[in-house]
């Protein structure tokens, strides 16, 4: 397969925070349209890795997005293609109204006000927030705020989605809604999460990161069901898979 067919291609990526090694020799790739999970204990380097996928951090090694190498000169193009959803939606909703927030990306991409308005409204409607465009984000519930943060990225129509722990602080209803949203996101998805059941429901494939190294990858159902591997890296076998195994052995 040519590199151009891959949505994300990472080759030998390393990065340190002022001497503290956060990523070492990471290589992997995502095919276009794939949904892949990134799991690992706190401090494994998941967030650090994700920040590299849209050029917010740049370490040594090569990162390509649909064949385009991330470097200073390609940043604006890369950022149009890679949508980032951050752990805290409050960080992502910084404009006075939701509609302005959802239009922020499209306007930066050079779309006209009219086009940006249309994109923003459409994205908010898709996330079930059509009525709330004039609202400010602090009047929303946690679940709504989470969907609003996704809408601000959806309006840019990115080819690649990078979501860093989008399920944190959600109640069961908000979590269910989020899972439904994640399953329907168009394009390629990389999802970092501690919610293993969510991972099983959304992602077919999964990468395991620990101590800045990629320690395993494969089909979610196989990787996450490996109790020894999970324990070794401070993770746990999701209930869904554990139950399944039990019912198979009985």
């Amino acid at each position: 397969m040519k590199p151009g067919d891959l949505a994300v291609a990472v080759e030998d990526l390393s990065f340190d925070y002022h001497g503290h090694q956060a990523l070492s020799g990471i290589s992997f790739s995502l095919e276009a349209g794939e949904r892949v999970a990134l799991v690992g204990p706190n401090g494994a380097g998941k967030s650090t890795l994700m920040l590299h996928l849209n050029g917010l951090l740049m370490g040594s090694g090569v990162v390509r997005i649909h064949g385009l190498r991330i470097e200073k000169s390609s940043l604006s193009k890369v950022r149009q293609q890679v949508g980032m959803v951050f752990p805290d939606p409050e960080d992502q909703l910084f404009m006075p109204t939701l509609e302005e927030d959802a239009a922020f990306g499209p306007l930066n991409m050079g779309l006209s006000r009219q086009q940006a308005t249309q994109r923003a409204r459409q994205a908010l409607a898709t996330m079930g927030l059509a009525e709330l465009g004039e609202r400010s984000s602090h009047h929303l519930s946690d679940g709504e705020r989470r969907r609003a943060a996704i809408a601000t990225v959806l309006s840019m129509e990115p080819k690649v989605w990078v979501l860093d722990e989008p399920g944190a602080n959600l109640d069961p209803k908000g979590r269910r809604e989020l899972i439904a949203v994640l399953r329907q996101l168009p394009g390629t998805v990389l999802l970092a999460s501690h919610d293993m059941d969510m991972v099983v429901q959304v992602c077919k494939r999964c990468l395991v990161l620990d101590g800045g190294k990629l320690v395993a990858q494969g089909l979610t159902e196989q990787v996450l069901a490996d109790a020894e591997l999970m324990e070794q890296h401070g993770l746990e076998v999701p209930l869904r898979l554990a139950n399944k195994q039990r019912s198979e052995t009985c």
Binding site: L56, Q80, M84, M95, E99, F104, N108, A116, A120
Partner: peptide, 21 residues
Amino acid sequence: DRVHQAMLARGFDGEIRILSC
């Protein structure tokens, strides 16, 4: 810091562009 990152991720280049006029 985090807000700035979120802005950069959505193509912020130092100029705030808004819809309302």
